[in-house]
């Protein structure tokens, strides 16, 4: 026969188990994206096809999302310019190695000089603080407006990159 404490523990465990089952089922797509390193899809735009190859050009004015693996491949091949949309202080604390500091708040001032030295067809990957951070998408849209035609957003951002153990740097670039 169960004691009162055992019954209480069993009921609490049952509540946690039911919550876990519902929570995982409810968020299964989000969790799959996170655990498979595909980044979090915060908007309904298709992920560019053929992971492991150069992504296709964005056909719309919305920057396309890229997953962790694709960004890592572009990082290794040095095919893309990686841009950090967070503020400079956050950038100094840690950023993807080789990324360019490009705070979204300073974008209007930075885009002209960036445009002058970067070909319009260059692959550009923008990231920010991951999770529900929208700065990368906002900056991506501004870059597309400035006629860059291959702009992508790494939605997992710096937290996902750092967590994967990929190269980071601190201080100024």
């Amino acid at each position: 026969m169960k004691t009162d404490a055992q019954r209480l523990a069993a009921e609490m465990a049952a509540i946690c188990l039911i919550a876990a089952v519902i929570g995982v089922a409810w968020n299964h797509r989000l969790l799959l994206d996170v655990f498979q390193g595909r980044g979090v899809q915060t908007q309904k735009t298709p992920v560019s096809p053929a992971a492991g190859t150069t992504p296709a050009a964005s056909p719309t004015a919305i920057p396309m999302p890229l997953g962790l693996m694709q960004v890592k491949e572009l990082f290794d091949s040095q095919e893309a310019v990686i841009i950090d949309a967070r503020d400079r202080e956050t950038f100094r604390k840690g950023h993807i190695k080789g990324a360019i500091p490009f705070p979204v708040g300073d974008a209007d001032g930075l885009i002209p000089s960036f445009s002058a030295k970067t070909p319009k067809e260059k692959l550009i990957v923008v990231y920010c603080g991951g999770f529900d951070c929208h700065d990368s998408r906002l900056l991506g849209e501004q870059l597309i407006s400035a006629n860059f035609n291959q702009v992508f957003v790494f939605e997992g951002g710096y937290p996902e990159w750092q967590d994967a153990g990929y190269p980071i740097a601190r201080g100024e670039n």
Partner: peptide, 30 residues
């Protein structure tokens, strides 16, 4: 808004990136 909550969980700097999402998926249901 599980992604925003995951961000708040991550701010505590206790869990990994994926761990923050897992907690954000389950804790609100508890």
């Amino acid at each position: 808004n599980p992604a925003a909550f995951a961000g708040n969980v991550a701010n505590y700097q206790v869990l990994s990136y994926a761990g923050s999402y897992l907690v954000a998926a389950i804790l609100p249901w508890i």
